[in-house]
Design a protein around this nucleic acid. Structure first.
Lengths: 339, 339
DNA sequence: CTGAAAGCGCTAACAA
DNA sequence: TTGTTAGCGCTTTCAG
């Protein structure tokens, strides 16, 4: 019942091997032959069997998207990256597996091993913080599994995609400064994410550019989750000289900060300016809408996956592409209160 | 280099077929033999090749999760279902593909066909509104691809998982009534989701139970997205007798209603009570926290996938399991304003 | 530029 | 309860 490669070959009057060549976009096929084969495939609605291809060619046409679901519960950010990776897969006739992992688990590497062996994954897309987990990267190299990273902290010898988080954060904080803020606090993200470091660096750069002294009391440790925004904001509010603006390292924590502000009866932006990072849907759904930095997560997922596929297809080395950010100035930031 | 089934057979002193039997949990293997084979597999760290299994057995051990990404952009609800399906897959050594689809597209069925043919999917998990797309269901039956549904509107002859949305909605609206509300509005979800109909039915049931007349002006059409909550709430506020409470058919729209309330200077819950449905993370991140109904999306994804796998493994017919809901009474609902 | 033969690692159908 | 034989649909050699 199903059409096989052999059937196509017969219909096109060529050998199976030639059809195979066309299928795999190999060189050394006369163009007229190729056209004939392509036409036959099309008219017969031929669908190559992934199993047979995998078995014979020891390729699976499968890429795995790895993420740590411990520090990233059901986040929109990951969902968008996933959509992007999927876009790239569809464009290149690859399949995608999504693989939640627990980086902290003792058998983390064994699980990754199992994943790769079980499914004969051709390549892997890494998301933070897995992008910078040395044992993982080592193992992937040992097993010669190509990978591409989304926002890796270490940018040497990596392919994938990144953004200039530091510049973006600096621009954001500069915006606060221009509004007149001087006591600006920062809620950090999880330490092992490059994003946390860069956003802190941007924060510091913006302050020092105008000669504001860096005050460690204004920098508190969050974990990228809403709850930590609440908790850390409460601490900041309790300071003898509370900040007039808070820059949280992502939107979720910014939402937490706003929540805590509400709880304390502070009105945003009248009493407190708040800004986040990422521009997830949440940002525009908060009241007031959140000033933040747009990070094109879906594009990033797609671009990273595309780089991986270049590599898999053996054309080129793959690059670390940079995507642009853009400031989203909304109503959660304003001049600081007088006095 | 990789260990093959044949190697295991040799090590265990049995034929390849016997190893295959053990691998596939077939009957008619002496227990002692089974143990010996299992031990050999374990000690040699044997990983069966999915491609070879797929090719020889014409099974892919692959299930696809289908969703419409037109009406469901990057929603947390779907992400949770996905996690659940993945749980079930891992527990049963299946792989999962995620397949965003556009139900409205003219080539929708062709795309589904291609999906199934390209990947030789063993079974499918359907999410609303695909659960009730007649041409899709017909095609799946024609091709004899088993499927399980999450919250199908039609509950006859389906396997999967459901919840009593109507009772839940009724309980929620009854809560509003008990607080003293009489002018209660409802923002509908998308018409082709069963959830929309049930939640409306629950709303009506609660009203009629206490003799409140059903007023069509208080029922407005949303689309499950934040934006529609905003737009429809504005209309409700403009009514000569605006409602004192609004029940939105999901949390996102409820967030939109709260946003519109803020915009208009209405304070929730003092001036307006708002409640939603689903208990997504958003619900507890809003200010004030949203009264809603908890729907255990992850469990639902898992249970649906498990039913599918029962079917795939040939044991039993699969059921439509029902999961319990639970009311989450939070701060977005209170007594109506005194005149 | 194209083709013929061999076999990837597993399971189906049959036999014992 | 176990083994034997053939072959799934494709790609890899290696020849032309």
């Amino acid at each position: 019942m199903p059409v096989r490669l052999e059937d196509v070959a017969r219909a096109a009057g060529v050998s199976p091997k030639t059809v195979s060549r066309v299928l795999n976009e190999e060189a050394y096929v006369k163009d007229s032959t190729r056209q004939r084969v392509l036409a036959a495939m099309e008219s017969m609605n031929y669908r190559p069997s992934p199993s047979a291809r995998g078995l014979a060619g020891s390729k699976s046409f499968l890429v795995a998207m790895l993420y740590d679901n411990n520090d990233n519960p059901a986040s929109t950010y990951l969902a968008e990256i996933q959509d992007g990776v999927l876009d790239a897969c569809n464009a290149n006739r690859y399949s995608m597996m999504v693989c939640p992992l627990r980086m902290r688990g003792p058998d983390f590497i064994r699980r990754v091993d199992a994943l790769i062996s079980d499914h004969h994954v051709d390549g892997v897309v890494l998301t933070p913080p897995l992008t910078d987990h040395p044992p993982l990267l080592r193992r992937l190299k040992e097993r010669e599994v190509p990978y591409a990273s989304v926002s890796p902290a270490n940018r040497e010898n990596v392919i994938g995609v990144c953004m200039d988080d530091e510049q973006a954060a600096k621009a954001l904080v500069t915006h606060l400064i221009e509004l007149g803020h001087r006591r600006i606090a920062h809620v950090l993200g999880i330490a092992n994410h490059g994003a946390s470091r860069w956003r802190l660096a941007g924060y510091k750069a913006a302050l020092s550019a105008v000669g504001i002294l860096y005050d460690p009391d204004y920098v508190v440790q969050g974990d990228f989750l809403f709850g930590s925004g609440v908790v850390e904001a409460r601490k900041l509010f309790a300071l003898p000289e509370p900040p007039t603006a808070i820059f949280a390292a992502n939107d979720d924590m910014a939402a937490g900060v706003m929540w805590a502000a509400n709880e304390r009866g502070l009105k945003v932006p009248r009493d407190l300016s708040v800004c986040g990072f990422d521009d997830t849907p949440l940002a525009s759904q908060l009241w007031p809408p959140l000033t933040t930095v747009r990070q094109p997560a879906r594009d990033m997922g797609k671009l990273a996956a595309l780089q991986l596929m270049e590599l898999l297809k053996g054309r080129g080395e793959g690059l670390l592409v940079q995507v642009p950010y853009s400031l989203q100035l909304r109503e959660s930031t304003a001049e600081p209160p007088k006095v």
